[in-house]
Simulated scan of single mutants.
Amino acid sequence: MNCEKIKQKVGIRTVLESFNLFPVKENGKTAFYFALDREEKIPSLSVDFIKNIAFDFGTGKSYDVISIVQLVNKCSVSEALKYLGKFDFSIQYHKQKEEIVTQSHYRGFKVKKIQHPVLIQYLKSRKVYEQRKLIKELHYELKGRNYFGIAFENNSGGFEIRNPYSKICLGKKDVTLIQGEENNKEITVFEGFIDYLTFKNIEKTKNSDYLILNSTVMLFKAIKALGEYDKIYLFLDNDSNGNITKNKILMKYKHVEDCSLIYRDFKDLNEWFCQGYIE
């Protein structure tokens, strides 16, 4: 595969994570990392996840995924291409093109219980209407127009918004950690909140904490915290993003159970529940 195709197909976040490099600050689309070639107290490497490039304010140098590998591994272009070939086009992390809207760009939102007919029908079509008390209906103004959707709050006060027509995040992107009884020893992990609601339909008595990533990109926010549990149950999607995320967790921890085998012929838990689950 040639250089230009690699630059377009392999995600810069995944490459940095492969070297155990994680953001110091981020807003979802961009982030600051510590420099790749020196120690520093204030991060100077600015990374743009959308453009898939980085810029070091300390040296004035720009980087793509190939030059990052060359710098860290001290290798040639051909060796860097070989290294990048293992990532299975992980830029698919952004394939859904979820829009992240900062708080300065939306206003006047109102949160209430689910009651709009369109949202009720959407939840029923996904067979999770029974769990409507775990979510809210949110109305907001964006670019002078009024919108509404199903809202699921994350740990930073942002909202994951879903309706039949769009998928966005209002505010800061983050995971959602739902803690149950004190000192729970188990945690169950999902990519999105629809799968979490689906699970609550199926298993109503499980004593577990729950982690909803709200995007596989956000794994770095919770990867260390997973080590505090004696057992980790994974209900991730059966696609490249889900597999990459699953393998990262399996490589780091031994006490992990991959539950995607339950719905191995379907994209995710909700699709299996809607099309193939029999009580």
Rank of each mutant, 00 (worst) to 15 (best):
8 Q>G: 13
13 R>D: 13
17 E>W: 10
18 S>V: 02
28 G>Q: 04
39 E>M: 12
47 V>A: 03
47 V>M: 05
52 N>Y: 09
66 I>H: 07
67 S>R: 08
79 E>G: 07
87 F>Q: 03
88 D>Y: 06
93 Y>A: 15
93 Y>R: 12
93 Y>W: 12
98 E>F: 09
100 I>L: 11
103 Q>A: 12
108 G>I: 11
111 V>Y: 08
115 Q>S: 15
115 Q>C: 14
116 H>T: 00
120 I>Y: 01
121 Q>C: 09
132 R>Q: 15
134 L>S: 12
140 Y>M: 09
141 E>Q: 15
151 A>W: 00
157 G>T: 10
159 F>T: 00
163 N>Q: 07
175 V>L: 06
177 L>A: 12
180 G>M: 08
183 N>G: 08
187 I>G: 04
188 T>M: 01
195 D>W: 02
196 Y>V: 02
197 L>S: 03
204 K>S: 15
214 N>R: 05
215 S>F: 00
216 T>A: 13
216 T>W: 04
220 F>W: 04
222 A>M: 05
222 A>C: 11
227 G>H: 02
230 D>V: 00
231 K>F: 11
231 K>D: 05
232 I>L: 02
238 N>S: 05
247 N>S: 10
251 M>N: 14
253 Y>R: 06
256 V>G: 04
258 D>C: 05
259 C>F: 04
259 C>P: 07
263 Y>I: 08
265 D>L: 14
273 F>M: 01
279 E>K: 13
